[in-house]
Structure formats: structure tokens, C-alpha cells
Design a binder for these strands. Structure first.
Lengths: 226, 226
DNA sequence: CCGTAAATGTCGTCG
DNA sequence: CGACGACGTTTACGG
């Protein structure tokens, strides 16, 4: 990876047009050719960038410190032009291949925990299957209640309106199938936004707030991911 | 901004748990305290990060090159631990305040172009207004067709299911208003995904694919943003 | 500060 | 390779 600190002007043309006036910025050039232009603030998103695969070409190089333009292009015709006015720092490091990130705690894990502890939603409930397939996509969990009636469960970390819409579409479809109807819905999330709760209530969908730590505590500790 | 290249092990605990095994990575520490951990690949998203506002504390510093741990925390109780094993590079640069990004060509621009050329959707159509207000948010464009009936137009760069849901919510609300009902819907986007098209069709919403370049070409060139 | 919608979203997974 | 949904989404905008 090459790391350059330089006074520069940057222009992007592609999905949109963007322009950065003259200032000192950090330019990262990764070994796959991708380029990030960072300011000293904002969050992790660069001011401008080009994603791989792309190629970098140097124009008007009149010497190592002379003004020059770096042009990064890709197959889609997008272009990032970096006009270098003065280089303050320029260094290249060999980082090697990164071993990558190990994650835990996302929706998939919530789903696994809840499937293993389906009775936490109601006594006598049984698991039909996870990722229950339908024509418009899989239902997170299909279960049956103590009376044997089907329950479609949609799981989110944060429950918002679009999650209720998603579950509504599933329920509409599932209830056309006379072999399983009636199917009711449960919207389960670690946190449910008020507007989502209102919409769910309006559609007779039950909301359940999940306690991730409690589910983990009840879970078989040998099943830890790491 | 401080830029460090170091062999490190990184752990994040917060909204989830994440672990990065030992490797050489680039660590950016911005002046607002935020931290990014980048590998030499992937896209602009760091492997791990902490967004501002947050604070960095150094633990177990046994000398400038000795193993040490940087702990970045925020008010929400999230923590990023960076175990520094060996520093290959460490430099600080004063970038000053960035003048910021100037953008053009996003949905707002599509909306402006389409509002100016509303007849491209149908002969005799007239613009009622852009950002037509409703209780649940503004409709991108409200128009009337050649017969004077109202048409609510939702504009996206990429038309997906959630855009159709959004327009559906607007239409449901608008059609309760007897002074403008019936209101029909048009889903307009540069690109419309098949599933979105199916859902729109099911709800009697018309899909229209927008040609951005053609709309620009017809547009008054003096109206350029920059 | 909360809530919603947009994003050059990016990233995984699965067909 | 494209479609689809999740994301520690982040970010901008309005009430």
C-alpha cells in the first residue's frame, strides 16, 4: 500500500459528479489499484474514492515534485482525477494478505439462538425450520404454536418499518396456501422502533423484543463461534 | 492526522464482537479521535473502526517500540482495542480543515430534470409540485395527467422493493383524501430491479425507466449546477 | 435529538 | 455474474 499526503484537487465523474477544492489530504493507494482520498475528519467514508478493479495512470509528470495528475479509471467509465500540487509525504508498505475479520452477534446468530430456544417465544412452540422458503424469499423462522398453528417469525437486530413490510409480504403469500393457513406473524428484534410497532399492530403482527445476552446465556456454551 | 503502519491484533466489542488476527495494517487516527484500521485491499470500508466522538487511551506502554495496547472507547460503551506488536511507520500530518465536497447528479438532480420535463412521462401531463408534502413524508413529484387526474411519482436512481413500498404508503394515504383521489403511482428510476417491477405491477404502479443522459440533453444547459 | 430516506453505499450469500 | 438483503451501515435532512 502506498500512502501519500499531498495538497491536491480531486474530481470524480461517474455515477455522479463530485469536486474537491484544493487542500492537503491523505491518499491511500491499495495494491489492488483502488484509491481513497481522506480528510482529517468525517467518519470512515473517504471524501472521494475509486473501488477495485481499476487502474491508475500518471499524467504530466515533469519531475518527482512537479505538479502532476493521477487518473484512476474503471471499466464502467468512471474516473477519479487527482491533481497533485505538492507532496508532503510518500511511502509504500508491504502489508501482505490480511487474514480477515471474524464476526459474531449479527442477525444470523440471533436466528440460530432463537431457533434453538423457540419456546422462549411461547410454551409448547416448536420449530418447523429456519430459512423457510417461499416464492419471494425465505422466512427467517417458521414455527408452530401450542395449538399447532403456523407462525412466521421475522428477525432483525433493529426492527424498523421495512422489516414489518417484509413480514407482511410473507404472511400475505403464506396465507394463500390452504395447507398451512392461518399463518400469523411475529416481529422479533433487539430493538423495535415506535413506528414499526404501530405498523405491526395495525397488521396484527406481534412484536417481541429479544434479549441477546439472555439468549446467549441460555445457549449451549460449546456452540460458541469463537 | 496520525498514520501508523504496524503489526497488530484488533478487537471490537459493541454492536457486535469482531476480531482481527495478527497482521500488518494501516491505522489512521484522525484529529477528532476517530480511528480506522485498513488492510491492503477491500474497498473503502475499514476492517475495523471507531466513529467520533470517541477517546483513545494507551495502555502498557513499556517504551516507544514495546508492545502496547490502544483502547478507543465512546459514550455508548463500544470499545476498539488495538494491540500494537511492532510499529513500522508512525507519522503525523496537519491537514487543516477540508473545504468539503461538491456533488451533482444524484436523485435530487433526476427529480429536477423530470419536473422540468414532466411531459416526457405523458403528453399533456402537468407538474403540481416537487416534494409534495404528506403526513408521512414528501412525494418526490406530484403531477396531473392529460385528464387532470393526480399522479404521485417516486424517483430512485436504482428502483428496488423498498422504493415501491415507500410509494405504496404514500398512495394509500393520498387516496384517503377525497379532494385529490384517485391518485395513481409511477415508479421512475434509471434502473428497475425485476422484483421491484413485479411488486409494482401487483399494486398497479406503473414503472418508468429514466434515461439520465437524455434528460440532461433536453435540459437547459444554463441550469447546470457547476 | 429522533426519525426517515439516500448512498458513487459496501458486503455477503445464493441462485 | 446478477439479484437480494444485511450492515457496528454512514450520512444528510426535517421536525
Amino acid at each position: 500500500m502506498r500512502i501519500v499526503v499531498a495538497r491536491c484537487v480531486v474530481d470524480y465523474t461517474g455515477k455522479l459528479t463530485a469536486h474537491l477544492p484544493e487542500a492537503v489530504r491523505v491518499i491511500m493507494i491499495k495494491s489492488d489499484g483502488s484509491v481513497l482520498v481522506h480528510a482529517d475528519g468525517g467518519s470512515y467514508k473517504p471524501l472521494n474514492w475509486m473501488s477495485p478493479p481499476c487502474t491508475l495512470r500518471v499524467e504530466g509528470d515533469g519531475g518527482s515534485q512537479a505538479p502532476q495528475t493521477w487518473v484512476v479509471t474503471n471499466k464502467a467509465g468512471e474516473a477519479l482525477q487527482i491533481h497533485i500540487l505538492r507532496i508532503e509525504h510518500d511511502d509504500t508498505h508491504d502489508l501482505g494478505v490480511d487474514p480477515g475479520l471474524i464476526k459474531d452477534g449479527v442477525e444470523a446468530h440471533l436466528q440460530a439462538l432463537l431457533a434453538d430456544q423457540i419456546e422462549s417465544l411461547g410454551a409448547g412452540w416448536t420449530l418447523v425450520r429456519r430459512e423457510y422458503p417461499t416464492a419471494i424469499g425465505p422466512v427467517d423462522i417458521m414455527a408452530r404454536d401450542q395449538r399447532g398453528e403456523f407462525v412466521a417469525i421475522e428477525i432483525k437486530r433493529r426492527g424498523e418499518i421495512d422489516g414489518v413490510e417484509q413480514l407482511t409480504r410473507y404472511l400475505e403469500l403464506l396465507n394463500r396456501d390452504s395447507t398451512i393457513a392461518p399463518v400469523r406473524g411475529v416481529f422479533a428484534a433487539q430493538e423495535i422502533k415506535p413506528q414499526a410497532r404501530v405498523l405491526a399492530s395495525d397488521r396484527d403482527i406481534e412484536c417481541r423484543v429479544l434479549d441477546y445476552d439472555a439468549l446467549r446465556g441460555m445457549d449451549d456454551p460449546t456452540a460458541r463461534l469463537f
